[in-house]
């Protein structure tokens, strides 16, 4: 039942209640934009392991979770973190060292899979990937699939167009629906019931949210209901889909939140450097993740100067002339 008037709760509590060992999860945003980073760090601090992560293009959040050893299975289209790490470093290492089970899809396939989950249909059709190795190379074995009721028995299926050549296609790729146990997104504004307003690109957040059993929303601003209800055309997610609302200013940091702050290019660069070395990476997470009790403490450690340097210009929504190399 998602109609409670007040779903606000501390982030620690929301993560502890809805993200469990072995949960199938997805996180919102895209590469270095609007990742629910406060929640990602909280998952790592609570040492929640064996997660099954569904990702289209993930970046910062994905690499922190994989680096911390929280992910055991991954269905993914892209792991990259902008200029600092065109391929996510901990992701690449985990694959190269056989530390996780993984399976490749495209961005459109993953977006359609979330959409199918949101629509309650078993699959959606696309022409993407015909003739590619995505169809024939399964990351998860047939026996592993059959032994796990939460994983579909086959990866992708090419099926004949039941309408002949209608639409100019004789066959299509059926991409199976995803229904995560929990999706976590970070948005600019939410009210206590969970209605959300996202500024800028929504990526696939809306589909991910509507496909999920539980949804944790972290928000820059917790606003009164009338603020959102006066302009409902600007809202993307109605409260019925949302389970918990956590007010976490700078909850997307170090990724960008349009209209509020830019990505922290320096932080991402330092993270990429640490990620290349095992000891340096442990030291990094010990200091910035395990060495703090909350996102607020993390931000104190990052310092006011960094946050001021990435503050968004009100006109453009990003930090103009910010040093980014």
């Amino acid at each position: 039942m998602n109609n409670d008037m007040n779903k606000t709760m501390p982030l620690e509590k929301a993560v502890a209640r809805f993200v469990k060992t072995g949960s199938h999860i997805s996180i919102g945003g895209f590469t270095l934009n609007r990742n629910p980073m406060a929640a990602v760090y909280e998952i790592i601090r609570q040492k929640i392991k064996d997660l099954h992560l569904y990702a289209h293009s993930n970046g910062t959040g994905l690499d922190e979770l994989i680096g911390a050893g929280c992910v055991s299975k991954l269905e993914i289209a892209y792991g990259g973190n902008g200029k600092a790490a065109p391929t996510c470093i901990r992701f690449a290492r985990a694959v190269q060292n056989n530390e996780i089970l993984f399976e490749d899809y495209s961005n459109y396939m993953m977006s359609l899979r979330f959409m199918a989950g949101a629509m309650g249909v078993p699959f959606l059709p696309t022409l993407s990937g015909l003739g590619s190795d995505m169809l024939t190379t399964w990351g998860f074995s047939e026996s592993m699939r059959r032994s796990d009721p939460k994983i579909v028995d086959s990866k992708l299926a090419v099926v004949d167009n039941p309408f002949g050549n209608w639409g100019g296609a004789r066959k299509v790729v059926a991409v199976p629906a995803i229904n995560p146990d929990v999706t976590i997104i970070h948005v600019q504004q939410a009210d206590a019931m969970g209605t959300c307003r996202i500024q800028g690109l929504t990526f696939a957040d809306v589909e991910q949210v509507k496909a999920s059993r539980h949804v944790i929303v972290t928000c820059e601003q917790l606003v009164e209901k009338p603020v959102l209800r006066q302009h409902p055309d600007m809202n993307q997610i109605p409260f019925i889909h949302v389970t918990a609302v956590c007010h976490v200013p700078f909850g997307g940091y170090p990724t960008a939140v349009y209209g509020h702050y830019d990505y922290d290019a320096q932080y991402l660069k330092r993270f990429a450097k640490a990620a290349r070395d095992e000891a340096a990476f442990r030291a990094y997470q010990d200091r910035f993740v395990f060495g703090v009790k909350s996102h607020e403490q993390f931000l104190e450690k990052v310092g006011k100067d960094r946050l001021a340097a990435i503050a968004a210009d009100p006109k453009t929504g990003y930090s103009v002339n910010m040093k980014r190399d």
Partner: peptide
């Protein structure tokens, strides 16, 4: 030997 970022939207 080397893992890259993956398809992203490239295949699409």
């Amino acid at each position: 030997d080397i893992r890259f970022s993956g398809s992203g939207g490239g295949c699409d």
